[in-house]
Design a protein around this nucleic acid. Sequence first.
DNA 1: TAGATTGTTAATCGATTAACAATC
DNA 2: TAGATTGTTAATCGATTAACAATC
Lengths: 212, 212
Amino acid sequence: MSDRCVSKQTLQRLPAYLNYLRGPGKGLKKHVSATMIAEALGLNDVVVRKDLASVSSSGRPKVGYVRSELIRELEKFLGYDNSQDAVLVGAGKLGQALMAYSGFPQYGLNILAGFDSDPRLEGAEVAGKKILAMDKLPGLCRRVGVHIGIITVPGEHAQAVCDQLIDSGILAVWNFANAHLSVPEGILVQNENMAVSLALLSNHLKEVFSTK
Amino acid sequence: MSDRCVSKQTLQRLPAYLNYLRGPGKGLKKHVSATMIAEALGLNDVVVRKDLASVSSSGRPKVGYVRSELIRELEKFLGYDNSQDAVLVGAGKLGQALMAYSGFPQYGLNILAGFDSDPRLEGAEVAGKKILAMDKLPGLCRRVGVHIGIITVPGEHAQAVCDQLIDSGILAVWNFANAHLSVPEGILVQNENMAVSLALLSNHLKEVFSTK
DNA sequence: TAGATTGTTAATCGATTAACAATC
DNA sequence: TAGATTGTTAATCGATTAACAATC
């Protein structure tokens, strides 16, 4: 494997490049240059070039990259090409919205089923996906070999759910709950933390108004 | 104002501190130390101390911080204490889930109304909030003085919606669409980008399995 | 050949960490 | 006084940027 160890910053920018490359077909030239991408996304061109170098080796001086080739390389690197199974715990409004979201398959995520402790939800279906009782969780995860768990329960239950997921063999947790999760070494917690985003928004407004 | 210019990294950690401080009431001592927080959250204690120093001046050697005081200072700094109005564009599944989410008020966000171009949604209500036609957007924003816009439309429409929001006086955009948004100087775009999160999750799993 | 573009090596910048002084 | 803790100043580390060499 040549594609190991990319910095987190780089990894966060790669999806934006892919997005741009896939983007509006107008002016679909066969080749793209790092400079073009950088300009469109408001980044430094050397950053883009360096990022792309860690993903692709198809860039050629004077020519640039072949768009379609670069797209494929990015998709492969980001794991969008082979789907990963996931389970979701907490089938409330947000959970159901995620279960129904049709965009995940194209990012290589396949939510197998939802789980909820509320017996009234048991057996219900969202977008063709079953909502199951919590006691079914370990069995399914083990059997199918699921490694991604999505947490959309209220904050106060998040840690308990997280522990159950890890007991069931989950290696990466996507946490939508507003709680800090403690996990053993080797488990990744990716926080989709609304509170952080809101803090950044609010801080921006504060700055805008304080300099006026 | 003493509380200007905190680094982005710091700003992203502050909500986690607040969360921890508010957290499970067990062992609610009156005082907390930076070391305690750092340990609980898996951070370096100097980082925590430095972050807190930029928000609070109530830390006392040997004693630490008064928990309740620190909570109030963090809430104030993060703008969670005085609510900001927001509009949401794109009242699909995700949009409705956000409109219905009851946790936002405690983070100082108040979604006034949803907007959608689909006439069938016009007039509908979600959690007591109206869904309105797009042509009502500028009027409402101007009249009430809304500065935050939330975008939950499909990626291909995101830029057009973003432009409309900015025309309506929006200064900060919370973007859930999978699209890069170009905005004029002085406007903040905060991306809640699922694609980025998924890339990080997938990369983690790749690393786990490649080192085995 | 000349120009555009890639990719690499060195310089700069900012954030984190380490060491230490101040203080209750 | 001694110990714990804050907060500051200096050292380290990593990422970004700048300069340049390689190449089609």
